[in-house]
Amino acid sequence: MIFDLDIIRELISALFLFMGSFLCISGGVGILRFPDFYTRMHAVGVTDTLAAAMILIGLMLQNPDGLVVIKLSLILLMTLFINPTASHALAKAAFHNGLMPLIEKNKKNNSLPDKKQESEKG
């Protein structure tokens, strides 16, 4: 019986880890494929939060007893706080500096995104 539970745990853990890795890759593809800064950020921000959560849960299932679970859940809590805030700050900085979202008309305007995040931080 215990053996069976172990196998089930391993399987669920593997599933979580796989989904997390897949989401990481899809976020990476999103950065490369999406046309402008805001859509790219959307791809990374959304998928990364979920991916990090899934990988952390998968890792918790790998070693379900002990201090590791507590540490990992604290990390999970922190990511859930910090990731959306970081995305917010980034988008706000870009918008603040006059980078407009890409709408059908002005397709040429997407070469600036990387440079525009700065001045708010400095």
């Binding site: 922190m78 706080f81 805030t85 917010h88 700050a89």
Partner: peptide, 10 residues
């Protein structure tokens, strides 16, 4: 506002 509140918690 958002940055301040979150970091004040952090």
């Amino acid at each position: 506002l958002i940055l301040r509140i979150v970091s004040k918690m952090m």
